[in-house]
Amino acid sequence: MKIRNYWNLRDFGANLWENASRPKRVAIALISIGFVALLPFMGASFLATPIASYDAVLVYPVGMFVLMSLGLNIVVGKSGMLDLGYVAFFAIGAYTMAILGTTTKLNTWEVMPIGIALSMIAGVLLGIPTLRLRGDYLAIVTLGFGEIVRLVLLNSSWSKGPNGIANVPMPPNIGPLKFELENQKVFFWVVMAMILLTIWMIRRLTVRRPGRAWEAIRQDEDAAELMGVHTLKYKIWSFTLGAAVGGAAGVLYASKNLYIAPEMFTLNVSILILACVVFGGIGNIWGVVIGATILGYLPDRIRFISDARLLVFGLVLVIVMNFRPDGLLPRKKREKAIVKREANA
C-alpha cells in the first residue's frame, strides 16, 4: 500500500499540496519556481546536452514544448477535441512577428498581442464550421488546416515563400536583462513566465463555469447541451484559447530564432506536441508539463533518439493510448483526494 503510493505520483503530489498550510504552499510554489528559474545555470551537470547548447535546448524545445502542450491541452485534455493542426497557430504567431518585426518598428512585446489576436481569429474562423462536427472530422480537418497554412506560407510572396524571413529582431532588453543569442537565459525566463501565466489561466478557468462546461462536453456532449451548456460557444472558446497560447509561443519563437521558414511548421510539430500531452497525461496540467519536459529534452540528450525522434513519439502515442491511457500523471480525480483527507482528519 505504502509503496504503491509512491508510484502514484499524482496522489503523492496532491497529498503534499492538500495537507500543506497556506504559507507552506506559498513556500513550495516559490521554491519550485526558483529551482526551475535556476535550471539554465546547471549546464555543466549531468543535464548537459551533447548536440545543442544547453540553455538553447531549455528554451526550444523544452520550454516551448511545455508552453504549447499546455495550450493544446486546453483543447484536447479539457474539452476532448483532437486538434491536429495546432502548428498552424504557432506558425501564425511566428509569421506575425517576422513580418511586423521586419517591416515596422514594433518590437516583440508590441507584436505579441497582435500575434495572439490573429491566432485567435484563425481559431474562430476554423472553429465555427468544424466544431459542430463530431470528433474524428475535427481531427482530419484540423490536420488539413495545419498543412494548408504551411502551403500558403510556402507559395505566397508576402511570406517570402520557401526562403522564409530572416533578420527578425530580438526582443528589446527588459531593464538589466539582455537577450543574447549565445546565452539564452533571459529567453528561458520569458518562456517560464508565459508558462506560469498559462497555468494560472487554465487553473482559474477549470474550477469555474468554463471548466465545468468543457468537462461536461468532454464526457457527454449531448447531455451537456441538453442541460443547457452552449456547447458550440465553449468549444470555440477552448479552441481559441489553445490557439492564443500557440500564437504567443510562435511570436517568441520567431524573435528567438531570428529566422523562420515554412519548413519549420510541418505536421510533425503538431504531432510532437500531441505526444507531449498524451505522454504526460491528457488533461492533467502537471502531467503535461512533465511529459513535455521529458519529451522535449530527451532527444537532445540521447543522440539515438534525436534521429528517430518522430518515430519514438509515434510509438509513444500508440503505446500510451493502449497500455496507460492516463499517461504519467492521470487526470485529477478529486474524489480520491477528498476521501484521503477525511481519512487523515
Partner: peptide
C-alpha cells in the same frame, strides 16, 4: 447519462 468523472455536486 450523468457526467461520470464529475462529482454529484459538480
Amino acid at each position: 447519462r450523468l457526467w461520470g468523472d464529475m462529482t454529484a455536486l459538480e
